[in-house]
Design a protein around this nucleic acid. Structure first.
Lengths: 340, 340
DNA sequence: AATATAAAGACAATCGATTGCACGATTCAT
DNA sequence: ATGAATCGTGCAATCGATTGTCTTTATATT
């Protein structure tokens, strides 16, 4: 029963008394081979239980039909859904996916690049590490013309194609929503300003404020790494000040979570005393109490789109396109901002 | 600047005026090569920017240094942490990881097997799909002597090594905890009974009940696919009966979540009227209100252990070991069961 | 000094599929 | 009917690293 896996094209060739090259061409539907021969070859392949040896093919063609993915951490819902999108699309097109996690560390990200390069992936999809400030390691790919597509966390410095959600609009609708609820002193906890997504969320926020002629108080706009811990620090800073805000738009749901937990602990009422809006629609946001109003972004769609773009570049050799695709976001209204 | 990637061992050989085989052996630290030559080769390799071509090596050795992983869905926290453990360990040992999702569907699982087989992975780690009832597709691996390790969702039918958490003990301590809180009518929502984990959780539960001489009421033990939707059905069945339970031990956190949401909606007080315990310690369980008492299982540890086992089998050719490793669980007490 | 032995490295085949080029056979045009 | 064009297929090199076997050189033994 076992060890049947040594069937090669030459076994098929021998069985049919033709040459290996003809078998290879027949299996690849090469136009130079007659239909009759093709059929004979394919039938025999099936009969012998032939399984093509991807390794040999890869070596010869130097294509691995594999794409690499670099993400900060797989356990964040947004990223795991992106992976799902990437995987599904790639697999449908006959590509494998190798995933590496940077853990938001520059050094690890650099390792990921090396690993993927050594695996000779045909292309790479990446979302940069929060703590990376230098992106030279990505040159390993660009120097060798290995297509690269970034998603979500992108940086202008890297001149490649990108897929992002409409963070500007997300910031805008979040702020406008709070304004419509009658909030006047609206704070924003923004993320690292070397990443476009946080710049854009902030700019969208500011635009809404200006549109509605709300004073922009610099003290109410703070920058944070947006971790669970730092969220507590921000919550404390904002909520214990002499003149606390009546609304907070957090740069992500994790930070919004920290605020809600802190407010609960201190007996500050949400949304009555302070309304809260997050960003991402992480699964937990629905189950919090109060449940969290947030800006939904589909990781699945972003992943799918990024893969579509990447495979197009790989297959059509479109070269370095530098296209930027922006996907829609929408506001999910829940209890944390629901005041009359 | 580009196209420097065509440095092969033969270029190194030529530069040093030695043969390719010597270069190959030197780079692999073969004992037949003198230290002096080794050093010269390695220095020259660095100088020329040599990057080994894994494809060629793979073809010759028919080892890909890649392991495959089949999981139901990456977006569930338990599985994404398992992946993190797998990845981390594998990478440290120089292995790549290819991930496939079965979406809990038998057909998809079968596809995953084919994909991984075609990728010629050196070994596979899997957690079976909930809706799979036939496991013949796994024979693709066992027939070809490709090592296979299962984790978490394992089935007796498959005779391979396995890594699981102590589900029996988990069921036991969950039940005993509820008993210690004075609960008398304790219900259990169990999962599909063809999977060991659910059988074991149930058996642990029963053992605790017997130990403390609590009547086991068959009506209070129900089987469920443990989805969000079916959780609502179970909640309704149990909580709207004439004689509702005063505690529910849910087979997973998702189902516990459904119960909490249902109870909230109906104004049933948790834990006063009904105490709830879940299983897994999904991240959201901490943020629910009331926060959820649950049995913690470390996906990371399970993944790490499974990988350790698999790589050991791959590297030491230990053959089909059929070892089963059981990792500890522990109870995390929170509000949902906290009654006096 | 002559032979035995070990050490260091070279040669060439190999893994399995792909592909440029060559070749024979058939068809077509004139 | 003859040369040209077309079609179908085979030959052999190739991708780059690995490895069994052979050869050369150095060292040891008596």
């Amino acid at each position: 029963m076992k060890n049947e896996n040594n069937v090669t094209i030459h076994d098929i060739a021998k069985a049919l008394n033709i040459s290996g090259s003809t078998v290879s061409r027949a299996l690849n539907d090469n136009a130079r081979i007659s239909e009759k021969t093709k059929k004979a070859v394919k039938d025999m392949a099936k009969q012998l239980g032939y399984q093509p040896n991807a390794l040999a093919s890869n070596l010869r063609t130097s294509c691995t039909n594999t794409i690499g993915v670099i993400i900060p951490r797989i356990s964040r819902y947004f990223f795991s859904s992106a992976i799902t999108g990437i995987e599904e699309f790639a697999r449908k097109k006959g590509f494998n996916v190798i995933i590496c996690q940077s853990n938001d560390l520059e050094e690890r990200e650099s390792d990921c690049v090396q690993t993927l390069f050594a695996s000779r992936v045909d292309g790479v999809i990446s979302s940069v590490a929060l703590k990376a400030e230098n992106y030279d390691h990505y040159k390993t790919f660009t120097n060798r013309n290995i297509p690269l597509v970034f998603f979500d966390r992108v940086v202008d410095e890297l001149e490649t194609s990108k897929v992002v959600v409409d963070d500007f609009k997300g910031g805008f609708i979040a702020a406008e929503h709070l304004i419509s609820k009658g909030c006047k002193r609206i704070a924003h906890i923004s993320g690292p300003q070397h990443l476009n997504i946080y710049i854009n969320r902030l700019q969208g926020f500011l635009k809404a404020m200006r549109k509605h002629h709300i004073d922009i108080n610099e003290e109410l706009i703070i920058e944070s790494p947006l971790t669970r811990e730092d969220g507590l620090r921000c919550a404390k800073t904002l909520l214990e000040s002499d003149n606390p805000p009546d609304a907070i738009f957090a740069g992500n749901d994790t930070t919004a979570l920290s605020i809600i937990l802190y407010a609960k602990e201190k007996g500050i009422k949400i949304p009555e005393e302070v309304a809260v809006v997050g960003f991402s629609n992480e699964p937990f946001s629905e189950y919090l109490s109060p449940s969290l109003t947030t800006v939904e972004q589909s990781g699945f769609d972003v992943g799918t789109k990024a893969t579509e773009l990447l495979l197009d570049i790989i297959q059509n050799k479109t070269g370095n396109r530098q296209e930027t695709i922006v996907l829609p976001v929408n506001l999910i209204e829940r209890e944390s901002s629901n005041r009359k």
